[in-house]
Amino acid sequence: MLTALIRTIILYFLIMGGLRLMGKRQIGELEPSELVLALLISDLAAVPMQDFGIPLFNGIFPILTLLSLSMILSVLNLKSIRLRTLICGNPTVIIQEGHILQKAMRSTRFTVDELIEELRQQNVVDLSTVQYAILETNGQLSVLLYPEHQPLTPKTLQNKKLADAGLPITVISDGHVLERNLHTLGLDRIWLSRKLEENNLPSPKAVFLMTVDKQHQLYFLKKE
């Protein structure tokens, strides 16, 4: 029985590692850890269900192990950005400011045909209207159009001049400052401290989420 437990732990990490190496395209809509859990649990549950000669505990034991591991990883994911990146990966920008990033496409093994197909599925037929396209960790493509091609809203009707806010980038996630994102926006810690002070926030630890766009407009949510 203990052997089944150890085997389950090894298989879980083995399949998860394998799926991470396979890349986002293979994963579909599930996060890697969720997919591993779904695949393994369905198989583990099916065997003792079909074969009455196998004790039910032989199925229950590994399933409980998988669920516990999944719970531990999801809590650790919540606490550690590094672990989250390691397990789920990072979203990859495929189109930036209208330019297709061929290097990013090669690294994610995302073909031009697939990109066009994904855009068509989101009712985008003209590539030149796309400002940003991001391949998310669950394998889906998020598309942001240039302001002049975005659907009309009451707010855009009021402002005749369309402001190009660009893509909001997360600079604080669950109290952690994402230095790389801050530098991508051409900002630094001094600017961030000033903004925190302006909004009566004692430190980044008090912020659950803060995003900044190209116009340096802030959106933040205090930690409860």
Binding site: F61, L64, S68, I72, V75
Partner: peptide, 12 residues
């Protein structure tokens, strides 16, 4: 989850 894993290890 840690407790369940520990219980499974002990039971095994």
């Amino acid at each position: 989850a840690i407790l369940i894993l520990a219980a499974l290890f002990t039971a095994g």
